[in-house]
């Protein structure tokens, strides 16, 4: 029952590691210093990439949810859970790094920016999802309820984002200082760094996802073995 680690996964691990080192080097050595915000702007590259991975996981969880409800194959439950967990971790990274960036840029830790706020709501949906799963013993029902809840979340989050956006445009949030926009013109080097980071994090997502699905599969096998022995 113990599967040997596939060679492809080992290769992917190494590629991911190399890419991460390269991306980090690019962020610190290749990307120019931003003219107004200074060093803290470098957080931007990994902040955006982390949010991107969060969204990938969010989408993957919804796909797994649909697939589970259609097929009833428990492996899709494992995949959905893996996607939710990775998305949870990366949205957390995006939120905290965004907050750290907001402090010097807008002079406040929290800006109620629609994107950040929506990310927080997604985290709360994930928390609810985990609690829901924890409250159900029966694996099949746990999978079914989990799939339904991820899909409900997937449908409600865009609506939530739009509502917060509308709230923002109609009653603009006052952010300290006149330079409230905090936007900056991206030089070619900055763009290159950003796209390289996005690519790296996408590969990182695939790598982590693979590991997490293997972990989930192993957990399910152990669970089955335990049930078999208990009889």
């Amino acid at each position: 029952m113990k599967q040997a680690k596939p060679i492809a996964l080992t290769v992917l691990d190494l590629v991911t590691l190399a890419l991460m080192i390269a991306a980090t080097a690019m962020v610190f050595l290749y990307a120019p210093l931003e003219a107004v915000m200074g060093q803290v702007q470098r957080v931007f590259y990994f902040h955006v990439s982390a949010a991107w991975v969060g969204m990938l996981g969010f989408g993957a969880a919804a796909v797994a949810g649909i697939a589970y409800l259609r097929t009833g194959n428990m492996q899709w439950d494992v995949r959905g859970m893996a996607a939710v967990e990775i998305s949870l971790v990366f949205f957390f990274i995006a939120i905290v790094s965004g907050s750290i960036w907001a402090r010097p840029a807008w002079n406040t830790w929290w800006t109620w920016d629609p994107r950040l706020t929506t990310a927080v709501i997604v985290e709360l949906i994930y928390a609810a999802y985990l609690m829901l799963r924890q409250g159900i013993e029966e694996p099949e029902r746990r999978a079914r309820f989990g799939a339904v809840y991820t899909l409900l979340g997937f449908i409600s989050v865009p609506v939530t984002f739009i509502s917060i956006r509308l709230l923002d445009t109609i009653h603009p949030v006052v952010i300290g200082g006149s330079g409230g926009e905090g936007g900056f013109a991206m030089t070619p080097r900055m763009l290159q760094t950003m796209f390289f980071s996005l690519f790296t994090f996408s590969v990182l997502f695939v790598d982590l996802y693979w590991h997490r699905v293997r972990l989930g599969t192993l957990a399910r096998q152990v669970e089955q073995l335990r049930l078999k022995l208990a009889q």
């Binding site: 210093l33 931003e34 003219a35 200074g38 060093q39 803290v40 470098r42 957080v43």
Partner: peptide
């Protein structure tokens, strides 16, 4: 010129 925000950058990463 750029603001001095190295501390936040280090904290972020």
């Amino acid at each position: 010129g750029p603001a001095e925000t190295t501390g936040y950058m280090i904290l972020g990463y």
